[in-house]
Write a protein that binds this DNA or RNA. Structure first.
Lengths: 237, 237
DNA sequence: ACCATAACTTGAACGCGTTCAAGTTATGTG
DNA sequence: CACATAACTTGAACGCGTTCAAGTTATGGT
């Protein structure tokens, strides 16, 4: 809200005439924070501990990050990139829609797996609608768009033939499903989160069949109805 | 965790040889808290303010409630009862499955409507898997079971004919869908949350049709596959 | 009636996230 | 080179949720 804070928020995208020192300190604080989160958990890591470990004053951390929660955004960005990279390999290997979708979903779980124990701890931050960490918030729209783009790739590069109207909506729908999988995963306490794996393996064939059916003329009215529903619910914010 | 705290937790179900004074204080604190939440919002209401307004020491509130979040459970219970009462009227009016389901969902939104602005504030508490406020937690299983029972009534009292296997699973599935509607509602900033209303009105006919289709012999294998998926995902915790 | 014990109540104190007025350091300009 | 200004850094202080040792009050057994 203050001038200082607004200026600090700009650090996200490195401008042209930016001092190097600031970015360095920012990275130092972020990496120290993520390391301590991994080692001790989110709630158990205090801002004082982060500052002390990074060798700066506690107020300095608040110059670069609006709050403790905002440090998590760095974690999101990192995992997002890892998911994209892991997905690229899978998408290069096959053109079968089901195989592509299944691979991308499993890759997403793989990437997040090491953080399962403390992902739950800060997941609540993401659930609050007003929080900038919410996957539906404006502040996470870059990350959201990047994530939706992965699912667009799943469809575009696949040999699956589907209704053109559905094709436009499907990436966002798959992303929504992915959020559901994440929600399930966070609550999944089974060893290795194998219930989440089973959920993916069981759901993908159903989606695959449904998507294939979308071109049948008999089902056209039903499909239009569903698409109209989505459109009507999306209207006005 | 301490003896005192454990004893306090027992107050939820009034024992036989319980002192009246304690229950009175408990109610006083809870009602004061809910009133202040409504007036000022959850985050803006401090435990000190609740204690002061109720005329007790702050430590006394912690004798009856493990934490500030636990005060919300009282809010849940109250709304749960209101939903049940509002649903009873609707369920007495019609035996049509779609009308019953639609009515119960709208009634649920009606009951929660006055609290929309601050429901979002404490919704994050419910999203954390480890939180006792999570709808999936063991501590909320009584409230969850009561909520599922409403959807069982929707089905049992309806004239809809459906596959017996599906009939067993459907109440819990509808409850899960209801949680999804609530999640949508919490994020819904449209005036009067009319997008949520549209979501309900658009989804209910689809569910109705799907449920009706469940008895068709051609779709039997697909249905069995879905039920098997649910079963496999439910296994082991 | 008496007292041991459980039920209840108190408020100071702790550690936390966060703020901010005051400092220090680097940079671009004359 | 000097100096005004923006960038950065500091740590004490604030209000919060929560804890707990110490009190007070009511109850059941004798």
């Amino acid at each position: 809200m203050t001038n200082v804070t607004t200026a600090a928020a700009d650090h996200g995208s490195p401008g042209p005439a930016r001092r190097a020192r600031g970015e360095q300190t920012r990275q130092l604080i972020l990496e120290t924070a993520l390391r301590l989160f991994r080692e001790r958990g989110y709630a158990e890591t205090t801002m004082r501990a982060i500052a002390k470990e990074a060798g700066v004053a506690v107020g300095n951390a608040y110059y670069y990050f609006d709050s403790k929660e905002h440090l998590i955004q760095g974690f999101y960005d990192r995992n997002q990139h890892e998911h994209r990279a892991a997905s690229a390999e899978i998408l290069a290997a096959s053109t079968d829609f089901a195989a592509r979708l299944r691979g991308v979903l499993h890759a997403g779980i793989d990437v997040n797996e090491p953080y399962h124990s403390f992902a739950a701890t800060f997941f609540k931050s993401a659930a609050e609608p007003s929080s900038p960490l919410s996957p539906f918030s404006r502040e996470s729209s870059p990350a959201r768009d990047a994530s939706i783009a992965i699912f667009r790739d799943v469809i575009e590069g696949s040999s699956a033939k589907l209704d053109p109207e559905l094709r436009k909506e499907l990436p966002e729908l798959l992303w929504l499903g992915w959020m559901g999988v994440i929600l399930f995963w966070v609550h999944d306490k089974s060893p290795g989160q194998r219930r989440t794996r089973r959920l993916i393996d069981g759901t993908v064939p159903l989606i695959d069949r449904l998507v294939g059916l979308s071109r049948l003329r008999v089902l056209r009215p039903a499909l239009r109805q569903i698409l109209a529903l989505i459109e009507s619910v999306r209207r006005d914010d």
